[in-house]
Design a protein around this nucleic acid. Structure first.
Length: 578
RNA sequence: GCCCUCGUAGCUCAGUUGGAUAGAGCAUCGGAUUUCUAAUCCGACGGUCGCAGGUUCGAGUCCUGCCGGGGGCGCCA
């Protein structure tokens, strides 16, 4: 067992469990018994605490304080644990050994992964995220799925998973009848050339409006849809063109955001599989007819019926999603399939997952949902024209950042200023979403989305840049090769605090990945940057005596490594200068 | 009507799965730079954790009810 294979909290939890089992043999027979160790809420209580004794009071029928004392007395020695203390009703407070922490930090600092294990090795995860609709521009509402999904992608890849990131485009459905009909009547070739997707959306909206009041138009749209579905060459060609134009625009945005997919399989990819799937559900008695449609009853699970075939014989998106699940299970044998969408699809996925299980799917299916983004005055609406295009948000972010860079680094060449502004601006936009609990409702405001101070990406990037500067200055004045000859040691409380926080990097990454919550990592990194800024402000390093100086610079290096690795997992760049 | 979800400082939000004295940022006020990047740091101010019950050694966190915001509830995706 090398130390790289277990995180600090895992190691201490294993130790604590052993302590309780040594004191109370009955616990040895309880395979599920765990004694989780986490950091203390307050520094005064030590470095880490275990609260298991209180929970055991009832089962062991002993006062919790006595349980904790027995466990402390029976605890096996552990090199990391310098002291164990029982406090309050039965808290077990641990103090981490300074020398042990220093050695461990030296190892972490030399490791690009900072000692993070790779529990995902040999496992596969399918991630379904972003998934915009063809013929509609991506607006600010799309950024959450894209940015959160991409962070989950990066987190799991980092942990060794084989990740299949699939962009499940909305490229099929009734809207294409309306769009094709509208295209024939309203298309403006010049506009289509200049801003294709915007023009497609304009066409769609115009055609949709007309369909609302004009029955003949509705029927015509339906006929175009049927022709498309039956493979009519002309409609098929139009559809292909719409998809192509949209994908070009999406790809431009993804490139800008540093987002990459392994697959882009739209809904249309599963068209041919739908009839067989329906036939199977009928054959297996899963589905029944109702009002001319085909539905699956989910009453047992307390869910409304799931409609899998419309009265007119057409399929809907539940059917497509089911076919998609089956295909992914068969093609990739994943441990889990994870969907990142907004909250409106909660019921839909609960239904799809329930039906999938009846179809024999054992794979874990998870829906990671997030709150809808709104404007202070209400919901986004294409018709009201209050939609903020994603590209405009990104442009604005870069512009604001560029103004700052020009003010603070006027000496840098223009190209470098722009590169920094891009990293800072896009980082700010991403971080604004990633640092927040996903399930909260987000009200979009420019100032919030583009915040460049306080708890924001630039704060973290700034901390990183200052370290890069320290590193360079050190190399100018001293022999950088001598750094590793001096051990890390703690001569100021802020160093110890920083070191212990750094040792929790693996735990933060694991927690963020397993809970599908990048915000947990963002929180961790923010705290790290805060601890570092305090350290930086109050403790000299380059002017410290030899030995202390090297130790501090090495700690800086470990912080830099953690910031860069952590921000990279969030899809945020770390320039050497900002 | 039913289901999901959110409600924490003036504003925007955290809160490690039930732990010790509820934390940040913004805003306001006061302070810090002949020094390693002041996009920073230090301090002050600021709280009936929506309301009322319940569960227990302990509740912002769990259960019930109510109030308020958001979303959803078979032929859109």
């Amino acid at each position: 067992m090398t130390q790289e294979e277990h995180t600090l909290e895992q190691e201490l939890s294993t130790w604590a469990r052993a302590a309780f089992r040594a004191a109370f043999p009955a616990l040895a027979e309880a395979p599920d018994f765990a004694a989780p160790v986490a950091r203390t809420a307050q520094e005064a209580h030590g470095d880490a605490q275990c609260n298991a004794a209180m929970g055991l009071a009832r089962t062991l029928r002993k006062p919790p304080r006595a349980i904790a004392e027995a466990a402390a007395a029976a605890a096996p020695p552990h090199p990391a644990v310098a002291a164990v203390e029982v406090a309050g009703p039965g808290f077990l407070n641990l103090r981490i050994d300074d020398a042990w922490a220093a050695r461990r930090l030296e190892a972490a600092a030399a490791d690009p992964r900072l000692g993070t294990p790779a529990p995902g090795a040999g496992r596969t995860l399918v991630l379904d995220y972003s998934s915009p609709n063809v013929a509609k521009p991506m607006h600010v509402g799309h950024i959450r799925s894209t940015v959160i999904g991409n962070a989950l992608d990066r987190l799991h890849r980092f942990l060794g998973y084989r990740v299949i990131a699939d962009n499940h485009l909305g490229d099929w459905g009734t809207q294409f009848g309306i769009l094709i009909l509208g295209y024939r009547h309203f298309a403006d070739p010049v506009a289509l050339e200049a801003a294709p997707v915007e023009e497609l959306e304009r066409i769609y909206v115009a055609s949709y409006e007309r369909a609302r009041e004009d029955e003949a138009w509705r029927d015509a749209a339906r006929r175009e849809l049927v022709k498309l579905q039956q493979g009519d060459p002309e409609n098929r060609a139009l559809w292909t063109r719409f998809v192509e134009l949209s994908r070009q625009e999406f790809d431009r945005i993804y490139a800008r955001l540093g987002v990459r997919f392994d697959l882009t399989r739209g809904e249309s990819h599963y068209n041919e599989a739908l009839p067989d799937l329906i036939a199977r559900m009928e054959r297996e008695g899963l589905a029944r007819e109702s009002e001319g449609a085909l539905v699956v009853d989910l009453e047992d699970e307390g869910l409304p019926v799931c409609l899998v075939r419309k009265r007119d014989g057409g399929f809907n998106y539940a059917t497509t999603d089911l076919a998609t699940v089956l295909d992914r299970v068969q093609a990739f044998a994943p441990e889990a399939i994870v969907y990142v969408t907004d909250e409106r699809q909660q019921l839909h996925f609960r239904q799809v997952f329930a039906v999938a299980r009846r179809l024999g799917v054992r794979t874990r299916l998870a829906h990671v949902w997030f709150g809808l983004m709104r404007l202070p005055e209400g919901t986004f609406s294409t018709r009201e024209g209050n939609v903020i295009k994603l590209e405009r948000l990104l442009d604005e972010a870069e512009e604001r950042a560029l103004a700052l860079v020009r003010a603070s680094s006027p000496d840098l060449p223009e190209a470098q200023q722009r590169a920094i502004a891009r990293a800072v601006g896009l980082g700010a936009v991403k971080y604004a979403d990633l640092s927040q609990h996903p399930q909260s409702l987000v009200t979009f405001t420019w100032d919030k989305a583009l915040a460049l101070d306080g708890n924001s990406a630039p704060y973290l990037q700034y901390a990183f840049a200052r370290i890069a500067s320290v590193r360079d200055k050190y190399a100018e004045r001293f022999d950088a090769a001598a750094l590793d000859r001096h051990p890390i040691r703690f001569t100021d409380p802020s160093e110890r605090r920083l070191a212990l926080h750094l040792l929790r990097f693996p735990d933060a990454v694991l927690r963020a990945a397993s809970a599908f919550r990048p915000s947990l990592l963002a929180d961790y990194l923010y705290e790290l940057a805060q601890a570092y800024s305090r350290f930086y402000q109050n403790v000299p390093f380059l002017r410290a005596p030899e030995g202390v100086r090297e130790s501090r610079v090495r700690i800086c290096g470990a912080v830099a490594r953690a910031l860069r690795a952590g921000l990279d997992l969030l899809g945020i760049e770390t320039p050497d200068r900002i």
